[in-house]
Structure formats: structure tokens, C-alpha cells
Amino acid sequence: MLGKLTIHPLFWVTIGLAIITGRFKEVILLFTIVLIHELGHAAAAHYYRWRISKIVLLPFGGVAIVDEHGNRPIHEEFVVILAGPMQHVWMVGVGFFIFEGGLITDSLFNLFIFHNMIVLLFNLLPIWPLDGGKLLFLLYTIIFPYKAAHRHMIYSSAVFLFILILFTVFWFPEQLSLWLVISFLAAAHFKEWKHHPYVYIRFLLDRYTKVYVGKEATLSVLPHMRVSEVLSLLYRGRHYSISIKELDVCADEQVLLEAYFRKKQVGCAVGTLFR
């Protein structure tokens, strides 16, 4: 399901600056590139039948907001993330043929290539919520349990954002549009850090309320471990059987999820659930 298309206020600010500085043609070109980039994400998500609630266009790219919470197959998310950057490949190719056909000027073609590369490379920076930040998060979910992966992503993203700020201070301090983008990234990063517990709970709730299909795995835990502690060890892409040591008990993860959400036994020791 495709959601509504929204233009972020930062884009309108960029357009205003472009009008003032006489660079309106550049902004229209940038808007077209960003729109196609984001439609690439949307098309891939639609192909996999993801629920897209909203597409937000920004000066440097966009954000496709989906109602999926880390439980779709990893290969699907990888394709959806890369579908945006991949649009720049064919756009450059089409632009080259149009230029060779004499339909656009040399200066317009160079401008088109420049903005394509800027949008592509900037979006691949490992900063949330850029495509590079999402790829970093995806990598972390393979290496760490989901809860820890999200936390590691936020910390790593903060480091790379700080590096980007230093880079801007020393090399492009006068670039107002870049500072506006950094402000957005900083606000988005702070929001993601603040919502960390809710991101994790949505991940668990999605597993609890749906028939979750993943690679079968067994998680061995001690009977004194709390329900919340055990659930924090779940990886995405795996459906767990919980083996409780010393009790010779093996239960599906749904038993713990039910205890967490329906029975409110968040702090209960898992061993007591089967006594």
C-alpha cells in the first residue's frame, strides 16, 4: 500500500533560498532527482507488499515511512534500501543519451550529473535515517539481537554525524543548506534515540500479533532470567524455541511474548512460567 507524498518544510526553505539566489532551475532538477530516488524505495516496498504510510521529500533525499517493524526478511529490506540509490544509475545513463542527442546543454548535463552524485553519495553516509544509516542498522541486526542492534546503530550514527559536522565546520561553514540538513539529521537522530524503547517494543509486538516466519533457532536460557531479559536476546529473521536449562523445558517464543504483552509478566523469571 502506497502512502501519501509529503514535502518536508526544509525543502520549501531550500526552494526559497534558491529563488533568492537565482538558482531555481537547480532546485527543480534536485526535486526531480529526489522524487525518483524515493519512488525507487516505494516501488520496491510495494513489490514486497510492505505498508508505506508516508513518503517525505527532503533536499538531500527522502524518507519512506513504513509500517514494518524489523520483522520482514533481511533480503527484502536490503533490496528496498538499495532501490533508491540504484535509480541514480539509470538516471545518469538516460541523462547521457539525452545530452548526446543534443537535447540539453553541457552546463545542464553537468549540473544533472553533479546533483545525482551528491544525492547518491550523501544518502549512503552511515547516518540515520539516510540509506547508509539503514544499511548499517540492517548489518547490526545480523550481528546483534534486535534491541542491541538498534542501540549500536544510534551510537554509530552519532559518531558519523559528529564527523559530518566537523567536516562542514572546516570545509563548508558557509553552506546554509548543508547546515539545515545537518539540523534535520540531528533532530531525527535524537528522536530515534528517544524512541529506542518503543522501536524495540514494536518489534516484539509485531512478532506477537502476526504469524512470524523465520529461520528456526533455539535459545538456551537459565530459569532465573526474566521474560524481558530473554526477549531482548531475539534476533530478527529467526523464529525461536526457548530452551530452559535445568528444567528440561522447550517452549515457542510465543509463550514468552504472551507473558510479556497479555499477562504483563515482564519481570517474571522464565522458570516460573512452567512450574
Rank of each mutant, 00 (worst) to 15 (best):
H69K: 09
G62R: 06
H88I: 13
F97D: 01
F99R: 10
V56I: 12
F97H: 00
L58C: 08
Q87T: 00
G61Q: 10
V80W: 04
L58W: 10
V92H: 07
E76D: 06
P59M: 04
W90C: 11
I65S: 05
D67T: 10
F97A: 03
L82S: 05
G101W: 11
L58D: 06
F99M: 03
G101I: 10
K54N: 05
S53V: 14
V79T: 12
E76A: 09
E76V: 02
V94M: 15
P85L: 03
H75L: 09
G102P: 00
D67E: 15
G70Q: 07
F60K: 02
G102D: 06
G93M: 14
I74C: 00
L58F: 10
F97V: 10
I98T: 10
W90D: 11
F78N: 01
P73Q: 05
G62I: 02
F78R: 02
I74A: 12
F78C: 01
E68N: 13
M86I: 15
V63Y: 07
I55D: 01
E68Y: 09
F97I: 07
H88F: 14
V92Q: 11
G93L: 12
H69T: 04
V89E: 05
A83K: 12
V63I: 11
V94Q: 09
A64Y: 04
V56C: 02
V89T: 04
V80A: 12
M86H: 14
L103E: 05
E68S: 08
H88K: 13
A83C: 14
N71A: 12
I81T: 03
D67F: 11
V89D: 00
P85S: 04
G95Q: 06
E100R: 12
V80T: 06
E100V: 07
G95A: 05
R72L: 12
G93F: 13
M86Y: 14
G62E: 03
E77Q: 08
S53A: 13
M91P: 02
P85Q: 08
H88Y: 13
V63W: 03
M91N: 09
L103R: 04
I65A: 02
V92R: 01
D67S: 13
H88L: 15
G70D: 10
E68T: 06
F78S: 04
S53L: 13
I81Q: 00
K54M: 03
I98H: 04
H69F: 15
M86P: 06
F99P: 03
E68I: 08
V63P: 01
H69E: 12
W90K: 05
F78G: 07
H88N: 09
E68V: 03
F97Q: 09
M91G: 09
E76F: 01
I98K: 06
S53T: 15
H69C: 10
E76P: 01
I98M: 10
G102W: 04
I104K: 11
V63M: 08
F96G: 04
